[in-house]
Amino acid sequence: MEQAATVPRWVHFSHEADIGVRGIGRTKSEAFEQAALALTEVITETARVIAHEKVNIVCQAPDDELLLVDWLNAVIYEMATRHMLFSRFRVGITDHHLQGSAFGETIDLQRHRPAVEVKGATYTSLSVRQDPAGHWEAQCVVDV
């Protein structure tokens, strides 16, 4: 479930009842994109999802951490209400204002074989920070 240690990349980490998603990128925006990929990988393998339809997402929050939760929850909302899965994300962040796009397709149960539905992104193990090498890490636990 973990890619090689290149940047950008995403990682899952353990939470006793659920699962943590972590995005690592050269910029904060890239880390947010990777966190959304990690979120999708909780449900299915992104390689099975064709990125041919675009959905725009906008969110705003008082700080980076709440913005990450808002972003992931917005992706969850779009998946749930459009019955879609996404495999590519584009994010731009300016002053805690996020403009993003998610690219994907309608769920195909046979092809995507979704493992589980995500109820929401939580504030548990929530952090958005830059490591000493200058890479951004954006992470939280998601409730499944």
Partner: peptide, 26 residues
């Protein structure tokens, strides 16, 4: 799930207004 998501955020943002000190945002 959506009610939980929305009110968690509202409560996290407004806790300080109500003078509530949270050891954990959640």
């Amino acid at each position: 799930h959506q009610i939980g998501t929305e009110y968690l955020k509202k409560m996290a943002i407004s806790a300080a207004e109500y003078g509530i000190e949270l050891p954990d945002r959640e």
